[in-house]
Design a protein around this nucleic acid. Structure first.
Lengths: 157, 157
DNA sequence: CTAATTTTGGTGTTATAACACGGTAATAAT
DNA sequence: ATTATTACCGTGTTATAACACCAAAATTAG
């Protein structure tokens, strides 16, 4: 039990089952993230940049404000302004301003941004199918359920 | 199903179960990591610094070389040299040199480093017990098993 | 209606991470 | 033995992240 984690961390034992679970979550997340990073890099994107594009695509052709983007990010980054700056520079996104609330600077994805996401999609889909190759549908559901139990109490309304 | 993840990412739906699993892994990892970061910060440490100290403690009073540290890290960092630099500066670790292989620069944890880890331990233990409060022993085992299935093929001997 | 408070973006600074390179030692090949 | 190759560590540079602060606009309170 836990032999794979032990091998991965070259560790003899873990203090508790709780720690083992947490380390496994970290290791798996790092593993998947690295695989994703490889793909993004091939297309000149970073993980946060990709995430912002994906979020913006969800509200195309409208956009989102800085705060709305942050609240939708997998890893909420305080530095969204500059992440968007880089996307704008590459013409993958563009800024416009709200009439109603002049504080808001809204960002929307461009055609070029959408095209880039479409180009990346097959690679990401193939990567994600790794899950199906390892877990049954029942297991996938059970896995998601358990993970949601762990962080669920802390999700805001 | 998946309601908690949807709420967290303010998303209406996900393209596939595979994506849902992956996002849940990322979100849970980020959640747990943030909680850990809070603790580390109270003690003036960063996550990678803590990780290196934890690894070095595993071979106290001997040390490890740079490569050995990297291979044991949850998130292998190329920049271990400078992470160790900072630990040495704070006298939490110290360098010494191998006689046998003069290329090797070995690092070991100091007494002060061990004491710091012991001071942090209760806070981390309490945090980790979050897992026990959410999952049964059977679930914990099943969760670890499934995660190990996902990355297991990629662990080197 | 005015003043205080809150929310929102942006910016300056510092610290850290990522990447590539170079030097030195060990190992393998000739 | 001598050379070539590989392994290991450190460093310089660039890019990004984290943190705190500031200005402007909206909201709330009096």
């Amino acid at each position: 039990m836990g032999e794979i984690l032990k091998k991965r961390l070259k560790s003899k034992r873990f203090e508790s089952d709780d720690l083992e679970v947490i380390l496994n979550i970290f290791v798996t997340s790092y593993f998947l993230r690295s695989k994703h990073d490889e793909v993004f890099q091939r297309y000149g994107l970073t993980m946060p940049q990709y995430n912002v594009l994906r979020i913006l695509k969800g509200n195309y052709p409208e956009g989102y404000s800085r705060c709305e983007i942050i609240s939708r990010m997998v890893e909420p980054a305080p530095d969204v302004t500059r992440i968007v700056d880089r996307l704008v520079k590459e013409k993958l996104a563009e800024r416009y301003y709200s009439e109603k609330d002049k504080r808001l600077s809204l960002t929307r994805i461009t055609e070029k941004g959408i095209e880039l996401l479409n180009k990346i999609k097959p690679d990401i889909d193939e990567l994600n199918s790794l899950i199906s190759s390892k877990l049954t549908n029942t297991e996938k559901k059970k896995l998601s359920d358990m993970l949601e139990k762990i962080y669920g109490d802390y999700v805001e309304e």
